[in-house]
Amino acid sequence: MLLLIARRFLFALITLWAVSVVVFIAVELLPGDACQAFLGQMAQGQRLDNCRSKHQLDRPAPVRYLKWADGLMAGDLGQSIKRDKPLADIIGSRFRNTVILGLSAAVLGIPLAILLGAIAALYRDRQADLWISGIAIFCMTVPEFITGTLLISVFGVWLGWLPGIVIMRADAPVLEVLSNIVLPVITLTLVMVAHIMRMVRTSMINILASDFVLMGSLKGLPRWRLVLQHALPNALLPAINLIALNIAWLMGGVLVVEVVFNYPGIGRLSVNAIADRDFALVQAIALLMASIYISLNLFADLVTLLLNPRLRSQRGTG
C-alpha cells in the first residue's frame, strides 16, 4: 500500500520534470527571445546585447534551463522582463482569484452533480430523470459566454439583483472577491454539473443492476440505506477521475467566463502574457497549470485507492 503511494508520487514528480523540460523547449522554439519582445522588432545592436547579458539570455539553453529549474525548486518563478516585477507577484493574486472562483464552483457543483446523477439513475427514464438529464444537457451544450451573458442580462441588468460584471483590483480582499463572484460561479456550475451528473448517472445505473444491490434488497434493506451505503460508494469510483479533471479545468481559469465577467483570474493573465510576448510569464503559467493537473490526478488516484478496497490489497483472489 505505502509502496503503491510512493510509486504514484514518484511518477507524478517525473511527469512534472518532463513537463518543465517540454515547456522550456516550447518557449525556446518561439521566434525571438524575451529581450527582443521587450524592446520591439526593430531593436538591434548594443541595447539588445545589453538586455541579453543583463538577463543572462546569452548563455546556452541548457544552462538557462538549469538555472530556471534551480530557481523553481527554491520557490522562485523568476522575473518578468516586460512587467519588471517578480512573476510570483504577478501570478499570485490572479491565481488566488481563480482558485476562489473555481473552488466555489466545485463546492457547489460537485455535490449537486452527484445528487442529481443519483436521482436520475434511481428514477431512470421517468419524469425526474428526463427533466434532470434534459436540463443538464441543455446547460452543457450552451457555451459559457451565452450562459454568462444571459445571467448578466437577467440578474444584473433586468432584475438588478447582482453586479453584472466584476469591478475590482486583482489583489482585492477575499471577502470582496466572494461578494463579486455569484454569477460567474453559477455559470461555471451550470457547465460543469452536466458532465459529472451524466457520468454518475451511468455508473449508478450499472451499479443498481449489479448482484449485490439485488441481494441487498432481498436481504430486506430499506431503499435509502441500500442506495447510500451500498450503491453510491461504488458508483462514485469511476467518477472520481472525471471530478478531478473538472476541478483542474476550473483551476486553469476558464478564460471565457473571466472575460465575460471581467474577472481578474489566471485565464485572462495567460492570454495577456501571450499577447505581450512575456516569455517568462507564459512559461511560469504553463508549468503551474501542468502541476495542477498532475497533482489533482494524483489526488484522484489516492482517493480511489482509499475508497476501493480491491485496489488496496493484493491478498485474496481479487
Partner: peptide, 28 residues
C-alpha cells in the same frame, strides 16, 4: 406493504445467491 416485505426478506425467508462473490458489496 414495503415495510413488511423488508422484514420478511432476510428474516423469515432468506436467499442464498448464485454468485456470492458478486452479491457481497465490494466496498464494505
Amino acid at each position: 406493504p414495503a415495510g413488511d416485505l423488508q422484514k420478511l426478506r432476510g428474516g423469515r425467508m432468506a436467499l442464498i445467491p448464485q454468485n456470492a462473490g458478486q452479491s457481497l458489496t465490494p466496498t464494505m
